[in-house]
Design a protein around this nucleic acid. Structure first.
Lengths: 217, 217
DNA sequence: CAAGAAATCAGGATTTTCCCGATTGTGTAT
DNA sequence: ATACACAATCGGGAAAATCCTGATTTCTTG
């Protein structure tokens, strides 16, 4: 019984590299690649992978939101986050979103295999660099310190904020999310009211600071 | 004959500190403080300082553009840049804009006094950490490698871009710059066409990368 | 179950943007 | 000296986005 793995990362080269590396393991089979969160959601429903390796920083729909939705919609799927950041907030949010594993991009490749096997057996896996402290931090920070974008905005609002900060127009966002323009307008308004920031430029900077979008491109 | 100095920095505390430090020198007199580039321009015309200590990162009108305009309008005024950045591009642009001195914010205070006296005698002054390499780089980079915002956009366009990336509306920018809304629209359009970036979010990120605005606030 | 949060949409007035075009001044090249 | 590019400035008019004020539905949770 092979483990069906899907890769979600916006860099083609990364996906190809991982695929190549994973090929050597007969019990693991890469069945698909997705270049952003939305594609990942789509493919998940169609292909039912066992494990999803998910990058966090991706255009359109980032890994955290995508994970939240994928885990909600596909019971049994195991998500492993793959990120450059050891930032507590990312780890925490990813785990809250339902990821079972969290790998740092500079980890040894063997770790990934180990992680895949772990989550398949319904166990969690964190990069050693994270484990200890993170688990503690996670619990401790859970209740207080809730001033990040993740506590202020709803998931849908965060999605819209990310899209806005990627330069999408209201109309385009409406199409992407398959809702009406009016709905998107409402979200923007709510986001602005909640954050007290009334310009796209300001929202963009906020999104950059909170890691919802990258300052590049 | 005392040297009349004006301070332009967006942080009140910095201005106050410098003023206090400069007080000890009987040949130097701080006659005014400005909290942004535009105020600096205004005061310069009214108060005719001999030396202007100019921070680079300031809201509204940054130190580089301000210097460019001040030097053009007030012959004889000596501008000394004061910056956290030793980034070549800043130094180069500041010198091209007409500054005679460039101080790093982590320099010893005595350097500032020395710089003030230097420029008063029509000589340049650069923080020792910069001198050598910078002068060479400056000359070398002058002609080629012109792909920064400073070569692509006109001064006016850069001003508008900065204001846009600070969250100002077209209307507000028109008021700030005392031109019509239509003019500002044209600038925005031109900026977008030149950069190939057609969203405020994208422009904001570009401005951040080029140092025209800060990612904070 | 009631209350609140989240997601969704609409109408209509007001602004902004977008896509054309135009004028004026200032250098710079021929 | 004349032409020519470039910078700065402004306008008209159609299209799109915003703002403001609701409103409905679903879901969770005490």
């Amino acid at each position: 019984m092979t483990i069906k793995v899907m890769l979600a990362d916006d860099h083609k080269i990364v996906r190809e590299g991982l695929r190549k590396l994973l090929e050597k393991y007969p019990d693991i089979q890469v069945i698909a690649e997705a270049e952003d969160g939305r594609k990942a959601m789509q493919f998940c429903k169609e292909l039912l992978p066992d494990v999803l390796i998910m990058d966090i920083a991706m255009p359109g729909l980032n890994g955290i939101e995508a994970t939240r939705q994928i885990v909600a919609e596909n019971q049994g799927i195991k998500v492993i986050a793959l990120s450059m950041h050891s930032d507590r907030r990312f780890v925490m949010e990813m785990l809250k979103a339902g990821a079972l594993g969290y790998l740092l991009k500079d980890c040894a490749f063997e770790e990934m295999v180990q992680a895949i096997r772990s989550v398949t057996r319904n166990r969690t896996y964190l990069s050693p660099m994270l484990t200890d402290t993170v688990i503690k931090d996670y619990v401790r920070l859970f209740s207080k310190n809730e001033f990040s974008v993740f506590s202020i905005l709803t998931p849908r609002e965060r999605e819209v904020l990310q899209l806005l900060s990627e330069g999408k127009t209201t109309r385009q966002i409406a199409i992407d999310l398959k809702v009406s323009v009016k709905t998107v307008e409402t979200y923007r308004q709510r986001i602005m009211d909640k954050l007290g920031i009334y310009s796209i430029a300001g929202l963009t900077k906020y999104a950059i600071r909170e890691g919802l979008t990258s300052p590049e491109k």
